[in-house]
Design a protein around this nucleic acid. Structure first.
Lengths: 207, 207
DNA sequence: CCAAATACTGTATGTAAATACAGTATGAAA
DNA sequence: TTTCATACTGTATTTACATACAGTATTTGG
């Protein structure tokens, strides 16, 4: 790939910024308007050169049909948005999307699996799962729905709060186990609502 | 927000999938083509209803100028692409973007800080940092450039491989310490290249 | 049972947008 | 000095696209 001229870099930056802001690419006329060109041809020429240098893709004849190709975006997979809850008090279905506190956006490649529509994220408070290397402040991504297997980490509703525990089956009976000697152990899982099964974790930077 | 009909959900899903795949929204005709409509009017009608229900935004008259409005996307911040390397043998600047093995895409909200252009990701192999709760298979996000502070986790080039260690200063001298009793401890940091300072972590799902 | 909303067909139209053709000015390379 | 690529102006043309109008089944709610 050859180097871009300063002007070409300006055009490319504008394309990228507009796509971020509006979700779609600007038309040739809009680009011309932004840079004060009186002729749409100036844009056509620039886009031709950008295409020639391999930094954008075009579908000829189509409106707003250009894509920026960066080395990273070639590798980039689909980015999924997962709702982040503070806690999930009661039913799961109702809570979905309404009262999400935030949003965790990760590509399925990094996170190692394809989140379903039942995926959600929780922020961990406390050190109760330190034995499984989950720390205070971590974001955990969970799947709502599937039955947990022995030894998997689950989020359960305990005293109105979503709490992470290990799901263990002992003599045929399911229990929830905290992975920290300071915490109470082995709560019978029958009367508890399992909200989700642990899938992945994000540990944000310390501030 | 009112409920969407099944057909409307299909249309919305198609819009979302196409935008993910192509970076731009399909035109009315393309939507009609996909669903086998013989009239572009069917699409116009659907888009009108989707707009009315508040799930998409439109700019009238403009080609492909529709945006999906989900509660999650309102919360979503900027998604950043961070190059993923297997290891970084020598110079950092040269390696950038060329030989990236993959790409980690996270929003800066989830990851807790704003990655710079010098951010990169490594996949952890081995259990040498288990004392700091970093496991085999984890993705770590690092910043290249800043001087590490005492106790911070760094990636250093040891025997041609990037290895995670804790950076400790003992009696004015910097050392690198493995957080696992099985591993050799306290390597003098002078002759080693510090490639990056730990910022965040992603633990993918086990397969 | 009727009214209203959904889910379309079919044709037509205005315009937004890409493109084509003909030029001009400027700086770098040869 | 010529040549070539960049960086544009100006006008014209074609087509991709959104939209408007007229009409028909099917479903849903009161």
């Amino acid at each position: 790939m050859k180097e871009l001229t300063p002007r070409q870099q300006e055009i490319l930056d504008f394309l990228q910024q507009q796509h971020q802001a509006n979700g779609s690419m600007p038309s040739c006329q809009e680009i011309a308007g932004h840079f004060g060109f009186r002729s749409p041809n100036a844009v056509t020429e620039h886009l031709r050169l950008l295409r020639q240098k391999g930094v954008i893709l075009r579908e000829p004849g189509k409106a707003r049909a250009l894509r920026i190709v960066t080395p990273l975006q070639k590798l980039r997979r689909c980015v999924q948005d997962i709702p982040l809850y503070g806690s999930i008090p009661a039913g799961f279905a109702e809570a979905r999307e309404q009262q999400a506190e935030g949003c965790v956006s990760v590509d399925i490649n990094s996170v190692g699996y394809q989140p379903t529509r039942n995926a959600f994220a929780l922020r961990v408070t406390g050190e109760s799962m330190i034995g499984r290397h989950i720390l205070d402040g971590d974001l955990v991504i969970l799947e709502h729905g599937p039955d947990p297997r022995n030894g998997e980490i689950v989020a359960a509703l305990i005293d109105g709060e979503s709490t992470l525990k290990t799901y263990v089956v002992k003599q045929g009976k399911p229990y929830l186990k905290a992975e920290n000697p300071k915490f109470p152990n082995l709560i019978p899982a029958q009367e508890l609502v399992i909200q989700g099964v642990f899938r992945a974790l994000i540990r944000p930077a310390k501030v």
